[in-house]
Amino acid sequence: MFTLLNLTNMITTGIAVLGFIAISAMFLIWWERKVSAHIQTRLGPMRVGWHGILQSVADAIKLLLKEDIRPAGADKLVWWLAPFFVVVPSVMAFATIPFGKTLIPKDLNIGVLYILAVSSVCVLGVFMAGWGSNNKYSLLGGIRAAAQIISYEVPLILSMITVVMYANTLSMQKIVESQSHSWNILHPNLALAGLIYITSATAEVNRAPFDIPEAESELVAGFHTEYSGMKFAMFFIGEYTNLFIISAIATTLFFGGWKGPLLPGVIWFLIKTYSIIYILMWIRWTFPRLRVDQLMGFAWKFLTPISFLNLAIAGWLLL
């Protein structure tokens, strides 16, 4: 149980993971700009450091130096806490992501349930940001974002349950172990679950074709308009951390986690995760955006019935 070795192992891995999150967020911001630039046949950041790799550092320094403006009439506590409720759950979800054979802060028995529970708290943060800003349009943006996130939770959970049914366990490390023969994605039932998972996870983090809450430049300005400086940086970092989390979970559940020949587990895990992140970025810069009602219709009228069907077929096949 809690021996001293276990405790020190947990703490060191935890600190390493926290450091990794910070560096990874900065790297992802730079990488997104580079990927989007190359898709659009231009070059992206080139000046700050080799091919602009220190651009994120420059942006972070700029955001630190900005004035923190609080809108008059904003609900002080709610407005101040909102960024934390967006970032902290994402960081908490890293506690059960298996980076390698033993590189996992704590392999909980209820790993999948823990991750789902913790990432659902993000909705609160979004809604608090919308409400606390004392701005009609931020509120509308926050409500839409909250509705979108809640609607896409259902197919997300159903697809993850399909994997859990096949692996017979909720623990993340054991799910990776159950894929020692073949990756989950190669099984047709689970391939469909994987597709549904990636689609609903993209909608969960407000990215790609589902980014109405943050890219709405027509009338509603989005739930994080009234934030400047470091608080805005928190939202931004939260978004890229979320992106990493969903790709990491997809790797673990569907692509075999850290399993792979020759190279150590960590390298395989990172390669797979970053490939999925690349695919998500690629999708973002190709497709137009869905309208709000089409988004909700897609979730409730298309994804949810299909994931129920998938679950039923999985249950019947496993009997």
């Binding site: 898709i39 659009q40 810069w285 190709t286 497709f287 137009p288």
Partner: peptide, 11 residues
């Protein structure tokens, strides 16, 4: 305008 953010515009 439809949200395909900048890619078709650049092409």
């Amino acid at each position: 305008d439809l949200g395909a953010f900048a890619t078709p515009l650049f092409y």
